[in-house]
Design a protein around this nucleic acid. Structure first.
Lengths: 137, 137
DNA sequence: CTGTATCCTGCCGGATACTG
DNA sequence: CAGTATCCGGCAGGATACAG
């Protein structure tokens, strides 16, 4: 697909993530964001409660997990079900659309994980060629 | 796949993105980051020079594009070829691994773009149920 | 044209404390 | 347990200038 073809098909689509103001860019950022991608993938295997999710996604703070879940719920990817019991119990799960997105995300993650040896090799070569210019330590 | 199965398979893998210190998490963030995902996808169709890329990825600054390209080059996803001419000419393209990653990203992006009507509907319903609590305007 | 260097600001996101 | 509320430091990232 060349540039002309891409532009033409982009013009025919209602949503183009390459355009600055398109709302799809915001959704893509929720999905691919630092915590969004891990949260969606973690929920793909099975629904979970809040603290269970915190344990699955190592390193996420309460605040960020809460924000992430709200954004994904608002976008219709996550379903939230609160039970008015005591102690309170809230279950999070993926909507059908959320599962579709998470499936693609999972494929991407597994690809990256499986190719990490290549990535680390490339980093070594890059750093070796540029001594003393540490990038992202 | 249940939780136990996931944990077991994770233990058997050398790289687990769900673990806080795993280097694969950093690479995943380069790939899925705000500019990384758009840059990789933009390069998937064809290689490009610096300013051509800036035009494709609407809204990216020189600084962020430069940083993004360096990180992706270091991870072995982007190939940089400088020609010592005057004026200088530098071509960026994807490595084979970069193309694999970009292919998955493209699938994800097209899924999100195609489902934006559902997402916008979900947002409307969410905001309607919580008047006056605007989230991420 | 292809970038670095520098400055500056907003907000991301962690820590902590508190509520129901 | 399941979250909000608040504070605040660091850095992401934009604007600008400048170099090769």
């Amino acid at each position: 697909m060349d540039e002309i073809t891409r532009r033409e098909s982009a013009e025919s689509l209602p949503f183009d993530v390459f355009s600055r103001q398109c709302p799809s860019r915001g959704t893509l950022e929720h999905v691919t964001g630092r915590w969004g991608s891990l949260t969606l993938t973690a929920l793909h295997e099975s629904g979970a409660r809040f603290n269970e999710l915190r344990r699955r996604v190592d390193g996420v703070s309460e605040k960020m997990l809460s924000q992430t879940l709200h954004a994904l719920e608002r976008d219709g990817l996550v379903h939230r079900e609160a039970q008015p019991t005591n102690p309170p119990r809230v279950d999070y799960s993926l909507t059908p659309l959320g599962h579709e997105v998470a499936g693609r995300l999972l494929g991407l993650i597994q690809l990256v994980e499986g190719r990490m040896p290549e990535v680390l090799d490339a980093r070594s070569r890059y750093d070796e060629a540029r001594p003393g210019q540490g990038l992202r330590p």
